[in-house]
Write a protein that binds this DNA or RNA. Structure first.
Lengths: 341, 341
DNA sequence: TTGTAGGCGTTATCAC
DNA sequence: GTGATAACGCCTACAA
């Protein structure tokens, strides 16, 4: 454990001032090539490492971006984060990632901890039950940019990276209808989350457009936790309505539904067609394979990080609005097929 | 954006010294309750927030633990990280999480970035192809504790949190044998990773114990990326040996295998029984459901974080060795059943 | 119990 | 092109 060597040590050794050393290290324009290289080699030989703590204090910034996501264990989040990380690292930023585990309380704590630790920007995908945004106001009033991805709040001061969930919900529903479904059920997440509210809205539009009457009985609001899939299946077994098409706002839950419905004697897709959302790898592993909506997690991460960094660099965002919307795609598989062998 | 308020501001306002303010804020023992509360309330009213940058510089520590994992998108990693986070947060530590995406190069870069950013400890689960540990030596020589979880290096200076993979591999194999399998194939990850080497070792032991001859033909070394499952299936279709039992070192890959084998006309478990590893949620979603080995991700995370923090607090570790091994569990499901309806 | 003053390692503003 | 020197905000001997 060689003792830390500082710019003062180098300065002394080279008989120049600490300022010169500092400037050389950061290749400041007004420094002669000669001294610069002299300093650089000396630094390398001495095994000099900048002390980030000092840099941070001096510059009052951490070169760190905080990220809060509901859970880490989905392919969507993983790729989204890979996108964020790529851009962030290239720009010299570190990431502090934390998961709210779908709880607003935890999200609050994380937000506070990240703020305390001095992140330069915050990227958030909201927890299931987050209902207020007070835990972000200190960021906003401190001028720390907050960007939302996927599960967003629409705050004037914050950018959002989303897809057109209304259209996606519409597309999914339309597909079910095109496959002959008439008694549709939409399994939604918490309607506080705009992603779910928007998908429901698209669902309604599709029904209306096809002359299918909508009532509250067509929606099942859920926390989308596979643990609770049985409540739904019990309901489906009892209900008078014979649903023939289900649009689930989440692949994992859709997969569980299918499995449990099969256990309960339903034939998917013959009796009931099912479409999910996310294009999680699970879609291709279950039987029947799951139709779904695909959307670009990596891209969303890239854009979020770029947005943050642009803001930090003081670049003017080119977008007139601060909401970026990406394209989704309907993926048709077996679970919505008309005849499935 | 109220301007930052510092302990000097409070000191001036209260007509005490900055030191007193500092001590009150950190409730130093030698400070009168009266002044302490006075300072505390004043701080609250003024909306005082410590400046972590200054604290870090002063203390030369960041109160941050770095974590590097291969990928974030598995249930195992997510729960492991939840365990780490719980313990870390309770002890006042933040987490910087990054994913190596199974690449040693990325792992190196991450390790370096985290070191630069001054983490107080590092928790690592190694990438698929990591073959050297040079990128950790600067930690060790700087006295920063490095702990490995699950996919570990056995370095003298580093703690490891693992399960008994040898025994787990043995148990999985024994189960296949007990179910009547005689021509066994083990699909392993990279044997550089001790987890996989150990499971293979257990596999061999089980074979030997049951009087089944082992040859290299009984092992298929793979990167366990579901994208490459077809190579395996092609092999299984061509080979003369009619394998009747497969032990896959990873549930996701096992799930893909099952799906592809089914497409190729194999009946699972009738023709071939399959057991995986991890107890990923996927196990219960595929058909047939997947037998596997369960192991305690959350616990492992907790222990890793505790180990790190104990070290940082200078507590003497109670364990005579620095390798902690946790218990695993065989989970029997349909994919290894003798008669499956 | 409280105050003083130096240190933590860099950066940045002036001068020269 | 380079050098002093003052921040940056907090901690902590050492004094009082």
């Amino acid at each position: 454990m060689g003792k830390k060597i500082t710019i003062y040590d180098l300065a002394e050794q080279l008989e120049v001032s600490p300022a010169t050393v500092s400037r050389s290290l950061n290749n400041h324009p007004s420094i002669s090539l000669k001294t610069k290289t002299k300093v650089l080699t000396a630094a390398r030989n001495a095994g000099y490492k900048v002390n980030k703590f000092a840099v941070n204090l001096s510059k009052q910034k951490s070169n760190t971006i905080g990220v809060i996501v509901p859970k880490l264990d989905s392919a969507f989040m993983s790729t989204m984060l890979a996108g964020v990380e790529k851009v962030a690292n290239e720009a010299g930023y570190n990431l502090i990632i934390s998961q709210s585990l779908e709880s607003m309380e935890k999200e609050k704590m994380n937000a506070q901890a990240l703020f305390q630790s001095g992140v330069d920007a915050l990227i958030v995908s909201l927890a299931y039950d987050t209902s207020s945004y007070e835990h972000f106001t200190n960021y906003i009033s401190a001028g720390v940019p907050v960007l939302f991805v996927d599960r967003v709040f629409s705050l004037d001061d914050c950018a959002t990276i989303v897809i057109d969930n209304r259209k996606a919900g519409y597309d999914a529903t339309k597909h079910l209808i095109a496959q002959g479904c008439r008694n549709l059920l939409h399994i939604s997440g918490h309607l506080n989350r705009s992603v779910y509210a928007d998908r429901l809205s698209g669902f309604k539009t599709a029904l209306a457009e096809s002359g299918i009457k909508y009532s509250k009985a067509n929606v099942w609001e859920s926390d989308l936790d596979p643990k609770n899939v049985n409540e739904l299946v019990d309901f489906l077994k009892q209900t008078d309505v014979s649903f023939d098409g289900i649009f689930v706002s989440n692949d994992r839950f859709a997969a569980s539904c299918i499995k449990e419905l099969q256990k309960a004697g339903f034939d998917i897709p013959k009796d009931i067609k099912v479409i999910g959302f996310n294009n999680d790898p699970i879609c291709e592993l279950i039987t029947p394979s799951l139709s779904t909506i695909d959307y670009p997690g990596y891209q969303m991460g890239v854009l979020a990080a770029q947005g943050a960094i642009n803001h930090l660099n003081g670049n003017i965002d080119l977008h007139p609005t601060n909401a970026i919307s990406l394209r989704h795609q309907l993926i048709i598989r077996e679970s919505t097929a008309n005849s499935f062998n």
